[in-house]
Structures are given as structure tokens and as C-alpha cells.
Amino acid sequence: MSNFNLTEDQQDCLQELINVAMGQASDQLARYLDTFVYLKVPSIEQVSSQSLIGTLNPSDTTVAVVSQGFFGYEGIRGEALLIYQPKDSDKLADLLGYEPDELSVEEQIIDLSSILTTTFLNVFASQIENQMSYSAPRLLASHKGAISEHIEQQSYNWDLALKVKITYQVTDYSFNCDMVLLIPESAIVNITDVLDRILASF
């Protein structure tokens, strides 16, 4: 198991790219959803496969986790997990502009997840002159027990991953959810190559 600790400069560079992507994605979201999205400083850290469930920290009340894979040029790939708390799901249909009886709560959660993931990663990719494709989003589990089970039962073919956690807060709906991007070990070197290229341009 090798440590891939990012250098301070790489970490700073990634953080700034994420900040800018978050900003533009939130702006698009705010216009589309007609509300204000509050931004927090994202966290970037290294996780091991054993500690993944602990760092995702699904609370007793977590209702849903949605997964969506992403992949771009230069071997940039990973998986996005969207983690929801129960109070978040009440007003989703209203937020998305649907009538509540037009779609199930599950569909609302999947729809919103896809919007959050793709808007953010599209902007992120364009900053590093890349382009992302996505797999269809899937509901991994719809309550706490199931998500812990799902993750704990897996035996992974990776030891370490780069984890980026972004919290979305939508003020008018007192709604928030965590978007966790997990980049597996094999793709991290591809990310650091891109970061080094950007840093070298300064």
C-alpha cells in the first residue's frame, strides 16, 4: 500500500479547481432551481478501503445514497456518492420543479444527484481541459443499515482513494446533502499529473 499524499501545492491547486467548479455549478443550480446555494470550503483527504464507511459517516438517519461513475480523458475517473438525510427529501419535488405525484421520492433523489454530480464535474473537467462521461446514477441503498452493509460486504480491489467532500446547502429549502467524490488509487497519478501541469504554468 503506497501513500500518495498530495504535496501542499498539489492540494492547494486541486482545492482551488474545486472551489471554482463549485462556484459555477452552484450558480447554474441556483438559476435552474431558482434558489440560493450556500458554499462551504470542500475537504480533501486520503481514505483507505477499511476506513471508507467511517469517513462517509452515514448517520443513523441517512435515508439514501446514490452512486454515479464518471470518466474522462487522461485516465481521470472515479465514483460520486450523494448522501442524503431524511429531512432533505421532503421538499425535493418542489425544489426540482415537479409535482409531488409525478415521480417517486427515489426518482427525485436520483434526479437531483445526477444534476449535482454532472454540473459540478462538467465545470471541473472544462478547467482542466477535459470532458466527462457518466454512468447512469443508481440508488445504492435507501436507509442506513443497508448502506453500511453494502459497503462493508464489499471486498475492494483498491487500498487507498482520494476523497473530496462537498456539502450543498440550499437555503430556501433548508436542504443539504453531501457529495463525496472518490478517486481510486489507479487514477490518482493521472490527477496529480494534471495538477503538476497547471502548477508548472505559474
Binding site: N19, G23, Q24, S26, D27, A30, F36, Q127
Partner: peptide, 25 residues
Amino acid sequence: ISADIQPEMQSKVLSLGAKAFLKKP
């Protein structure tokens, strides 16, 4: 100079006395 480019944020900083709002990067 911020990444948070939502119109609401732009008008907020201007009302707090900033001369201008510039998008990141």
C-alpha cells in the same frame, strides 16, 4: 475575486461596499 458567482452573492458584496465583483479564475 470569488468562485461564488451567484447573483445574490454579487449584489451582497457590492452592497457591503466592494467596488467590483470579479469571477474566478
